[in-house]
Design a protein around this nucleic acid. Structure first.
Lengths: 183, 183
DNA sequence: GTCTATACACCGATAGAC
DNA sequence: GTCTATCGGTGTATAGAC
C-alpha cells in the first residue's frame, strides 16, 4: 500500500459522505487498513487526509479536464474535449463534485481558499477558450460561469432524482451553448 | 417556546451544516434550549428534528414558490412571481437548498423519497406553466428541469465563489430562458 | 417544560508491540 | 507498515428532579 493508493481509496468516501461524514471507521474500511495505520500516511490525521484528497483530485481534474482546454485546437474542439473528460471525471454523473461537497459545513472553514482557487482556475481556462472564439471578455466570463452552474446543477439534480439523464443532456448541449454570444 | 418556533430555529443549522453536521450541541445552542429539552418537542430525536425541518420547509416552499405558479395569470407573470419568491426563499442566494443538502450522505438514506417527491412537484408545476405557454410537454419538462439545474447550480457557485451575483443573474434571466422553445 | 446528571457508542488520535 | 489497546472528547439519547 502506498500513500497514492490510500488517497485513491479514501477519495470516494469524502465525495459521498462529505468531510464530517467521512469517519475514520469508513476510511479504514475503504482502505482495508486499521484506523491507526492511516496515521502512517497522514500523520496529522483526518484533516490531512481531506487535504490530500482535495489536492490529488485537483491534479487529476487539471490533467483530465483543463488540459484539453489549453490545446491549440479550435475552440469548439477544445470544449468537446472538456465535455468528454467531464463525463469520465464525474462518471456520467454518478459521483458528486468534491468542490461542491467541501463548500459547506466544516470543510468550508478548512478549505475554502483552495476550493475557490480551483473554481476560478476552471472559469479562467473556459473563458480563454471562449475569447479565442471571438467572444468579448465580459460575455466569455459570464458563459464560463454558466458552464459551471449547469454542470453543478446537473450533478445536484441527478442526485435529487436518482437519474443520470440530466447530466448527460447538459454535457451534450454545453459547447454550443457556451459559444452563443447571446448567453 | 412552541414546536413551530423550535423548527424555525433549528432549520438554519441543518441547511448550513447538513444532517451529520447538525449536532445536538449546535441545535441546542440555536434554540437556547438544553439538549434534553429538544426531546420534549422531538421525542424520537435528531431524525425527527430533520424530518420536521424538511416537512416544514416543504410547506413554506409550496406556499411561497409553487403557489404563484398555479395562479390563473399569464405564464410569463407566473414565472416572474416564482422568481421573486425564490429570491426571498433562498435569501438572494445566501442559504443552501435543504433538498440539495439532504441528497448526500446519511440524510439521503433517510429522506430520499420525500426529497425526490418535492423536486418532482416543483418540476411538474413548472412544466404546467410552460405547457400553458404553448410549449410541447417534452420541451416543457426539459425546460422545467433546466430551471432546477440553473437554480441549484447557481446556489453551488455562490458558495464556491462567496459571491451572490451568479444567483441573482440566473434568476433574472430565468423566465425568458424557460419560455424559449429552443431551450 | 426545562433542567442536571448520566449512560453508552463512536469520534479522532496516540502509544507501543510486532 | 500494520496491528491491538486505549485515551479523552463528543455524539445521541434517557432518567428523573423541579
Amino acid at each position: 500500500m502506498s500513500r497514492a493508493e490510500a488517497i485513491a481509496q479514501i477519495t470516494p468516501i469524502f465525495r459521498r459522505y462529505g468531510y464530517e461524514g467521512a469517519t475514520l471507521s469508513r476510511l479504514s474500511q475503504a482502505t482495508g487498513l486499521g484506523k491507526a495505520s492511516l496515521y502512517h500516511y497522514f500523520p496529522k490525521g483526518k484533516e490531512e487526509m481531506a487535504a490530500a484528497v482535495l489536492e490529488h483530485t485537483h491534479q487529476v481534474f487539471s490533467e483530465m479536464v483543463l488540459k484539453p482546454l489549453r490545446t491549440p485546437a479550435k475552440p469548439w474542439e477544445r470544449l468537446e474535449g472538456m465535455v468528454q473528460s467531464l463525463s469520465q471525471f464525474y462518471q456520467q454523473g454518478e459521483v458528486s463534485c468534491l468542490l461542491a461537497i467541501f463548500s459547506a459545513g466544516a470543510a468550508d472553514d478548512l478549505f475554502h481558499p483552495q476550493v475557490q482557487r480551483a473554481v476560478q482556475d476552471w472559469i479562467q481556462a473556459l473563458s480563454e477558450v471562449l475569447m479565442a472564439a471571438g467572444l468579448s471578455s465580459e460575455v466569455a466570463d459570464q458563459n464560463a460561469q454558466d458552464a459551471i452552474i449547469q454542470i453543478q446543477g446537473a450533478l445536484v439534480l441527478v442526485r435529487l432524482l436518482n437519474d443520470r439523464a440530466p447530466f448527460e443532456r447538459v454535457l451534450r448541449g454545453l459547447p454550443d451553448r457556451l459559444l452563443d454570444p447571446g448567453g
